[in-house]
């Protein structure tokens, strides 16, 4: 029995990490129609930066703040200086974010080197809990909690604030929203920076589990794209539910059919796309 609990906790924590990445990716795409390929690089920068801060000061909270703030700034810079000149030029935007992906990931290699590194855990959450026959790390519960808090906060903002209303309107019909006098460029900047911040939080929270590593960052970005595709672009609810779906399927798939670990992810994606080409909560 505890086998199942253990897998569920593992799956949920992975799902919440995915959500942190996918939420930003999905919002940016839904509102701005930008496929931000540099999202994984932002995740990477945040995990390396927080690693250094953690090593230097030993404070996880400070690491989280620095990591998130730094990539928010990078996101702001990317959007203000570059992306907003390319509004509506999809190909140019994709190329640009692709370029940022290379620059940022090479920079991290240059600064932190190619050695594999995993972030130490905050002391308070470093231990393991016993659950029947098995043990699991407490840190995973923290990841789940952070994921849920972020999801609830985002949901509240989207549902009950005028900012959220503007974002929702922008996702539905950007031209009409602009016509109603909403300052779209500023909204874009805000949403892009927020997406970057979420990637940063994901990078820091994922640091102790997934590690600061180029390959791992790409791997998890791939999963995040799957989440966005299944959930539907621009939908927070979709991103959340699809994260749960992908996280749990991946974990249980690996546990029950270890031979088919990639299949268990992409097969459901193919099925969802066949039935609902826009994803579970996407709009046509």
């Amino acid at each position: 029995m505890s086998f199942w609990y253990l897998q569920a906790i593992t799956g949920l924590s992975f799902a919440m990490l995915l959500f942190l990445l996918a939420a930003g990716l999905s919002l940016i795409f839904g509102l701005m129609r930008i496929i931000n390929l540099a999202h994984g690089a932002l995740y990477l920068v945040a995990s390396y930066l927080s690693l250094s801060v953690m090593r230097g000061t030993g404070s996880f909270l400070l690491a989280l703040l620095v990591g998130a703030a730094a990539v928010t700034l990078i996101g702001l810079f990317m959007e203000r200086r570059f992306l907003n000149r390319l509004y509506r030029m999809e190909l140019a935007q994709v190329l640009l974010t692709f370029g940022f992906l290379f620059i940022l990931s090479d920079l991290t290699q240059w600064v932190w080197g190619g050695e594999p590194q995993i972030m130490p855990k905050p002391a308070l959450f470093a231990g393991s809990l016993r659950l029947g026959e098995m043990m699991f790390p407490i840190y995973r519960l923290l990841v789940i909690a952070v994921g849920i808090v972020v999801a609830v906060l985002l949901g509240l903002i989207q549902q009950y604030t005028s900012l959220g209303a503007k974002v929702r309107a922008g996702v539905d019909d950007a031209e009409m929203t602009r016509g109603l006098g909403v300052d779209l460029p500023r909204l874009f900047t805000g949403v892009f920076a927020m997406g970057a911040m979420l990637a940063g939080v994901g990078g820091v929270m994922g640091g102790p589990i997934i590690g600061a590593n180029l390959d791992a960052a790409f791997e998890i970005l791939l999963f995040a794209f799957v989440v966005v595709i299944i959930g539907g672009m621009g939908s927070l609810k979709g991103a959340f539910l699809a994260s749960l779906f992908v996280g749990l399927i991946d974990t249980f798939g690996k546990a029950l059919f270890p031979e088919y670990s990639l299949f268990t992810i992409f097969a459901p994606m193919a099925i969802v796309l066949a039935i609902r080409p826009t994803g579970l909560f996407g709009r046509t």
Binding site: F3, L6, Q7, T10, G11, F14, E133, M134, F136, I209, I210, D215, A216, F218, E219, I220, F223, D250, T251, F252, G253, K254, A255, P258, E259, S261, L262
Partner: peptide, 20 residues
């Protein structure tokens, strides 16, 4: 014999297998 992809972001699901 358990195998996981070279780039596996999380080992936990396999570890539960081992315990079983």
């Amino acid at each position: 014999q358990l195998f996981a992809p070279v780039r596996t972001p999380d080992m936990a699901p396999y570890l539960a297998q081992i315990q079983a």
